[in-house]
Simulated assay, not measured.
Amino acid sequence: MASKRQLKKDVIAEVMRLFDEALIIRSVADSEAMQRELEDLMDDIMVFTDDTLRRIDHPDGKDNPALVRSYYRALRQHIAENATHISDRLDQFIEGL
């Protein structure tokens, strides 16, 4: 299993990429409604980041290695799904430009 530190670095790198993409799209957005929606999306990204980093630090079943492995496996799946969902939302904004 990878370390918590490496998992945090991976999450932060992915979130930074998504957040930067949202900032770029917001800078070229022509309507205020789209800019507000992008700001809401950036807020969602920040909440996702905080929640995920908190979950990395506090796994379920500390004393049972099998439970810890399954916890991190599920957490990685959760991270991948949410990153894909946010990326899809950003793609919709790009199509709207």
Rank of each mutant, 00 (worst) to 15 (best):
Val68Ser: 00
Asp63Asn: 12
Ala2Arg: 13
Ile25Leu: 05
Met1Ala: 10
Arg17Met: 11
Arg26Tyr: 03
Asp91Lys: 15
Glu37Val: 02
Ala83Met: 10
Ala66His: 03
Glu39Lys: 12
Thr49Trp: 05
Asp43Arg: 14
Asp60Leu: 07
Leu90Val: 11
Lys8Val: 03
Asp50Gln: 13
Phe19Ala: 03
Leu97Trp: 09
Glu95Cys: 02
Tyr72Phe: 11
Val47His: 12
Lys9Thr: 09
Ala13Arg: 15
Val15Ala: 02
Leu90Trp: 14
Leu38Ser: 06
Ala80Phe: 05
Lys62Thr: 09
Tyr71Pro: 00
Leu38Phe: 05
Ile79Arg: 04
Leu75Pro: 00
Lys62Ser: 04
Arg89Met: 11
Gln92Gly: 04
His58Asn: 12
Arg26Glu: 15
Ile24Ser: 03
Met1Gln: 08
Thr84Pro: 00
Phe93Gly: 01
Phe19Glu: 07
Lys62Cys: 01
Arg73Gln: 11
His85Ala: 13
Asp30Gly: 02
Ser27Lys: 15
Gln6Thr: 13
Arg73Phe: 07
Glu14Leu: 08
Arg17Cys: 03
Met34Asn: 10
Ile86Gln: 03
His58Asp: 09
Glu32Ser: 07
Leu7Asn: 03
Ser70Thr: 14
Met46Ile: 14
His58Tyr: 08
Ile94Ser: 02
Phe19His: 08
Leu67Ile: 02
Asp63Ile: 04
Ala13Gln: 14
Ser87Leu: 03
Gln6Asp: 13
His58Phe: 06
Ala29Asn: 08
Leu23Gly: 04
Ala83Ser: 12
Ala22Thr: 07
Glu37Ser: 09
Glu14Pro: 00
Asp60Ile: 13
Val15Cys: 01
Arg69Ile: 03
Leu97Cys: 05
Gly96Asn: 15
Asp44Ser: 14
Arg54Asp: 09
Arg76Asp: 04
Ser70Ala: 08
Phe48Asn: 05
Val68Lys: 03
Phe93Thr: 06
Leu41Glu: 10
Asp44Cys: 04
Asn64Glu: 05
Gln92Asp: 15
